[in-house]
């Protein structure tokens, strides 16, 4: 499956089907990330049940602490 993630076309392994699996794939802790799929913000409790599809435009924002 190919998705546009943070502006870049990325080929994802076939087993990644949900937002939760996507975050796990990129090793991003669910609780500190905000995810938008096709310009819709996804509530954290729905990560496991939100499917992603070929061609989806996904934005992942993760919080950092440096400064």
């Amino acid at each position: 499956m190919r998705c546009i993630i943070n502006g870049e076309m990325i080929d994802l392994p076939a087993h990644i089907r949900t937002v939760a699996q996507l975050l796990q794939h990129f090793r991003i802790h669910e609780k500190i990330a905000i995810v938008e799929v096709n310009a819709n913000i996804i509530m954290k409790e729905k990560y496991e049940h939100t499917a992603i599809a070929d061609g989806d435009r996904i934005e992942i924002v993760h919080f950092v602490g440096g400064g």
Binding site: H29, K31, I32, I34, K44, H62, F63, V64, G65, G66, G67
Partner: peptide
């Protein structure tokens, strides 16, 4: 509201480095 947990043990300027341009953008 945005964070359900406090990020901890993630990248810091002392582990992942930092370049000045991003400081100025923030």
């Amino acid at each position: 509201c945005l964070l359900e947990d406090v990020p901890f043990g993630v990248a810091t300027c002392d582990t992942a480095g930092i370049i000045s341009p991003v400081v100025h953008m923030v």
